[in-house]
Write a protein that binds this DNA or RNA. Sequence first.
DNA 1: TAAAATGTAACAATTTATATTACAATTAAG
DNA 2: CTTAATTGTAATATAAATTGTTACATTTTA
Lengths: 144, 144
Amino acid sequence: MQISSRFTIALHILTAIHTFKDKYRVTSEFLSGSVQANPVIIRNILLQLKAAGMVKIPRGRTSESITLLKKPEEISLLSVYSAIEPLESDTLFAFHKNPNPSCPVGKNIHSILDDRLLSVQKAMEDKLKNMKLSDILSDLNQLI
Amino acid sequence: MQISSRFTIALHILTAIHTFKDKYRVTSEFLSGSVQANPVIIRNILLQLKAAGMVKIPRGRTSESITLLKKPEEISLLSVYSAIEPLESDTLFAFHKNPNPSCPVGKNIHSILDDRLLSVQKAMEDKLKNMKLSDILSDLNQLI
DNA sequence: TAAAATGTAACAATTTATATTACAATTAAG
DNA sequence: CTTAATTGTAATATAAATTGTTACATTTTA
């Protein structure tokens, strides 16, 4: 199974908030137009980013925009990933429930794999930690 | 979303095939008893491992066991992962379809993220490549 | 007070994962 | 040659997760 598109949508959203901050008023409706996804999906992702302290979302009839609360170099892809992906007990790899406890393999396989697969997950997270929103923005500036 | 339990079940299966090769006759029924999952699920995973050249599955009424076709040191966790996970065009991260092509962000975000997230995926795969079935077997031998 | 926007709940649709049943095909034993 | 044990495979059911939609209360400004 793939990691859900909510993560890449969140990166799209953050990129758009910064890119258009001086040109347009950025609302969930505006962002929904760029992503081409339902506004409610955008709002829910925005709420998760807000809970992680990354964005400010003005309420009511305002002329303000949704804005970043951190500098792009301070927003790592890992922090976005963690804000968005509600992994069951933070583990990337799923296990079959109830392996046979009276089998020496069934009894021990879970804890053995847990340690090893956690280190795999950590390798991925380290890579995400070293990538920043600013990297994506500079990639984008090369293209537009 | 998590990576499906089929991967960890496959590791359980391979571990059991090797661990019990001299003590029991290893069949899909036997493995199903250790994993405590339906025999058909075990057989389907076994067929994927067979397609990857990792196991030999005797047919019919035989006294043979299901056996490994490679040494445990030659079976990397990456090869198991690749045999089992049918990732859409081999990409771990999913994207929202149809971002707005008339928006500079919508138009370019996919290709930018593609490159960067592929390198994240590669970091994970490198880690999996350096772990072997033999590592899991020696972890297990410490415990039994 | 009305209009514009967000926050949130409820629900529908779609897709994926997991489990189950059934049976044809293969092989060995009697 | 027939029976029994086992795998291969299809069809279907169940459950869970993802994505999309509608509706409306809440907040704020004009």
